[in-house]
Write a protein that binds this DNA or RNA. Structure first.
Lengths: 214, 214
DNA sequence: CAAAAAATGTCACTCGGTGGCACTTCGGGG
DNA sequence: CCCCGAAGTGCCACCGAGTGACATTTTTTG
């Protein structure tokens, strides 16, 4: 008995307009099934409490096959990590050469902010899961590291890679990702009710102008 | 045959002046033996390549006992994480109420910077290990999170915990830890030859005054 | 020296993750 | 249309980190 019903295998063209064969379609269906089942069970029972065998059994796939779709259990929680990073890189590389890094990041904020607010409730729940699961927090930190790294490299690409420019680029990137992460955590923990775009822009303004204190 | 030679069990008073019984002395010896053996083997063969059984066999202790000294394999690489954090907290709480967070952090930099420079070569090697080991990078990120959290809480303790103050405190803490981490990475990757205290203070200056660009 | 308490060892087990190999399924070319 | 190669999958055995239960040894204490 096939576990993936046949109507999941509708032939849709992929993002490049090529039609999907059965093979490709089936792979997509399996992947999304794994993510969906996992999301639900993680949400219901917790990440550590849910076993890969649980998920694989429900999807109807062997654990060995699972590891051909995902490198690790944690990856189920960040299924489009690569795609997100790519879009961020695109924002960075699309920026005019003269634009300063803070303005570039504000553009990214205006792109991602509204998107996050649309999926507010799902993201808040997701973040609650991450916040209470050490290995997921670790994954998230790694993602932030990636973003910080591409940002630092982009800045260096514009300002040079001598030692002074390199350290400056790293420091700016570190500060930016630091404030973005802090802002997001605040937004998540307050239930996602505030205007994320506004919060992000405010934080970046502070960073650029300096934190005037007292 | 006891694996820990008797002369490791010298009776020294602990940090509160109480003399150490055999039990306490032996525990200390076991703990440091585990750390030392692990450090050497991690450095020689790599973190993932070294098995806990390898380490335990060499120290002469069962794996079960290992887990009574350390919660995880990774903890062997950060043996005084708690103590470092405590010292950082002390710097924060010892700060006069009127001092702004950046100045407080500069004081921390002047405390930890020279210390790091003394153990330069060991720390650089250690960081190389961390940099090439995903699970160790994750641990390091967690440590940074701790520092960021205590810093945010300290700032909130001085400025109030209403929503505006809270987000501001978080953002400042995020920015500070971000630039500190970036600075340290730069220092490590350049072999620890530059003046870490100076680098740290410069980065914090930029943060406080704003990054004047172009 | 005896009894309580602390530390360690042993064993069995769970779970994430990997390598190898056989088997099935799909797609393309004759 | 069929057949052959390749892609995808399952199965099995295995490894290493981490945990719980319980017996055994060692240290402290009275």
């Amino acid at each position: 008995m096939p576990r993936l019903s046949e109507h999941n295998l509708i032939e849709r063209p992929d993002e490049h307009g090529r039609p999907l064969g059965r093979r490709e379609a089936r792979k997509r269906a399996t992947r999304t099934a794994l993510v969906n089942v996992a999301q639900r069970r993680f949400h219901d029972d917790g990440f550590e409490e849910t076993t890969l065998d649980d998920i694989c059994d429900e999807v109807g796939v062997s654990r060995r096959t699972f590891f051909r779709y995902f490198k690790s259990k944690e990856d189920l929680v960040f299924p489009n990590r690569a795609e997100r990073l790519e879009r961020f890189v695109k924002v960075l590389t699309d920026a005019p050469d003269a634009e300063n890094p803070f303005e570039t990041l504000r553009r990214a904020t205006r792109l991602f902010g509204p998107e996050y607010m649309v999926h507010r409730e799902q993201l808040v729940a997701q973040q609650a899961l991450i916040a209470r699961t050490p290995s997921l927090r670790a994954r998230e930190a790694e993602i932030d590291r990636d973003w910080e790294a591409v940002m630092a490299r982009t800045i260096m690409g514009r300002t040079g890679d001598d030692r002074a420019s390199a350290v400056r680029a790293r420091v700016i990137a570190g500060a930016c990702i630091g404030v973005i992460r802090a802002t997001m955590r605040h937004w998540f923990e307050t239930g996602g009710v505030e205007d994320l775009t506004q919060l992000g822009e405010d934080a970046l303004d502070c960073l650029e102008r300096g934190f005037a204190l007292r």
